[in-house]
Write a protein that binds this DNA or RNA. Structure first.
Lengths: 182, 182
DNA sequence: GGATACATGTAAGATGTTACATGATTGT
DNA sequence: ACAATCATGTAACATCTTACATGTATCC
C-alpha cells in the first residue's frame, strides 16, 4: 500500500502514543512548534478519513452526532507507521522535503530502537554532504552570472545544509552513547 | 489584486530579465538548484496562463500551433513583481515559508535598490530572532515530556534558524558596504 | 527519412486552504 | 438561560503531481 502524506503519518504517530480525537490532534498541532502542519479541520478530518479507508485506524463511534470520536491505530496502521519511520532518507527527500525528514526523525523516539535512529542520522549526514557538494559545484560554475543577492541566497542554502549535517553527526554521537540528553 | 504563488512570482522574475517561453522556464528551473520549484509542465503552463489572465504577461503568438511562444512582462506585471519583492518578511513567512522568502531575496538583485535588500535582511533577522525565542521557550517548557529524538529535532530547527539569522546579518553587512562579492 | 531535441499543453487525481455550518457539554 | 468551549464536518476553490498526447524544427 502506498504511503500517505507527511500529515497522515504524523497523525498515525500521534495516535500511536494514545487514542485521540480529531479535535485533540488539531490542538496538538496548534500547540507544538513542529510546524509543517496546519491545524485546519479541512486538512485533518479528511486525512483521518483517508487513514480509516486504508484500514490503518478505527474509530470509537459511528459518525452522525457531533460527539467526540476517538481514533486508534490498527495493527496494519502500526506496521505502516513503522515502515514509514524506517525508510532511508533519499537524496530527493533531502532536496525537496527536509522538514518531512525531520518530522520522521522526531517520531522515532520511543518506538524504534536507538540503532535505527542512529543509522538514519548517518545516512542523512551522507546525503546532506552530497547535496552540499552539488550546490557548491553549481555555485562555482555559475557565480559569475548571478546577481549579488542570488549568490548570497545560494550560500545561505549551502550553509544551512552544512549546519544540518553537523547537527546530524552530533546527534548521532549523542544517541549512540545512549545519553538521552543535550 | 491578490498576489500569486511563489511559483508565479518566480516566473515573473525570470521573465523580467528577458522574455522566455514556457520551455525555457522549465529548463531554467531544472538547472538551477534553487529548488522549491518543480519543472513539471503541469505546473508551469497553468501558472503562465494565470499570469496572463491577470494581465501581468503577454504572449508573442496565439496558441494553437505547437510553435514557441514567448512571454513578456506588462507594466502591471512589473508592478506586481516589485510589490512582491518589497513585502516585509512576516512572522508567518518565517515560520511557514522561509524558502519562499529566500527566493524573494534571490530575485532582488539588480532591480531593487540595495537599500531595499538591506532593509529586508534586517527585518528578516529580527523575525528569525523572535521565532528562535519562541521555539526556545517551548523547548524549555516541554523538554521533559519529549522523546530524545523529538528534542533533538527541535534543537536542530532552532540551530537552523539561528544560522540563518547569522547569515542575514552577515549578508546585510556585505551588501551595505557595497561589495558585490562573498 | 528518421532520430533527437524543441515545444506546448491537457486530464485525472490528490491534497490543502479558507470559510462556513452546526451540534454537544459544561460551568455560572 | 447563556456563554464558552468542545467537537465534527463540508463546500468551494486553488494548486500541484504524474502521466499522457502531440506537433515542429534541425541535423545527419
Amino acid at each position: 500500500m502506498k504511503p500517505d502524506t507527511v500529515l497522515g503519518h504524523a497523525l498515525l504517530g500521534s495516535l500511536q502514543q494514545e487514542p485521540r480525537s480529531g479535535y485533540d490532534l488539531r490542538k496538538l498541532f496548534t500547540m507544538t512548534p513542529l510546524n509543517h502542519f496546519s491545524d485546519s479541520p479541512g486538512a485533518i478530518y479528511p486525512a483521518l478519513a483517508r487513514l480509516r479507508a486504508r484500514g490503518w485506524v478505527v474509530v470509537s463511534r459511528p459518525s452522525g452526532s457531533r460527539r467526540r470520536r476517538e481514533f486508534r491505530l490498527t495493527p496494519a496502521g502500526r506496521r505502516a507507521w513503522v515502515a514509514w519511520l524506517r525508510r532511508s532518507p533519499s537524496r530527493a527527500d533531502v532536496t525537496w522535503n527536509l522538514d518531512g525528514l525531520m518530522v520522521r526523525f522526531a517520531f522515532m523516539g520511543g518506538r524504534l530502537p536507538t540503532s535505527a535512529a542512529v543509522r538514519f542520522l548517518g545516512e542523512l549526514a551522507r546525503e546532506l554532504d552530497a547535496h552540499v557538494r552539488s550546490l557548491r559545484r553549481y555555485l562555482e560554475s555559475a557565480a559569475g552570472s548571478m546577481t549579488a543577492t542570488g549568490r548570497l541566497a545560494l550560500e545561505s542554502g549551502i550553509e544551512s545544509y552544512e549546519a544540518r549535517a553537523r547537527w546530524a553527526r552530533r546527534a548521532r554521537r549523542v544517541l549512540a552513547r545512549g545519553r538521552g540528553r543535550t
